[in-house]
């Protein structure tokens, strides 16, 4: 349940630490975004280490893909999966990843043709 004003963690090496959701994409009057959805974010905070080498700047607006949510995601077979944090990966307008590496595991339900680039960047699937 990611909505406008939600602050999320960025788990890639783009340089951003936290972002704020400013729009949920994917439909008229769509209120909440869930795992695998795209949102529009503004960069809130940068990582201390990569402040000079960062690809992004504070206040910039990006698209982002939600890869982990605290709210349980109900699978088709009835079981559920959830994470300890809300986190995203920054993407560009063409929905290609801005960064070159994803930190932490990705859920298996992102294993689709659409997310092939993200899967190959990640350290593992859960």
């Amino acid at each position: 349940m990611i909505q406008q004003q939600t602050i999320l963690k960025v788990s890639d090496n783009s340089g951003a630490k936290t972002v704020r959701c400013i729009r949920v994409l994917g439909g008229f009057r769509k209120k909440y975004a869930k795992l695998g959805d795209n949102i529009i974010v503004s960069v809130q905070q940068l990582r201390n280490k990569s402040k000079k080498t960062s690809k992004v700047k504070k206040g910039e607006v990006y698209k982002a893909l939600i890869i982990r949510t605290k709210v349980p995601h109900k699978k088709k077979d009835g079981s559920q999966i959830w994470f300890g944090e809300n986190s995203v990966v920054l993407v560009n307008k063409q929905e290609n990843p801005v960064s070159t590496r994803i930190i932490g595991p990705l859920p298996k339900l992102l294993k689709k043709k659409k997310f092939q680039k993200f899967i190959s960047m990640s350290s593992g699937l859960i």
Binding site: R68, P72, D77, G78, S79, Q80, I81, W82, F83, G84, E85, G104, P105, P107, I126
Partner: peptide, 15 residues
Amino acid sequence: YPGNGKLMIRRDGRP
């Protein structure tokens, strides 16, 4: 069994 249970993934990535 399949279709039952919940998978919680901790901050450190441990399922």
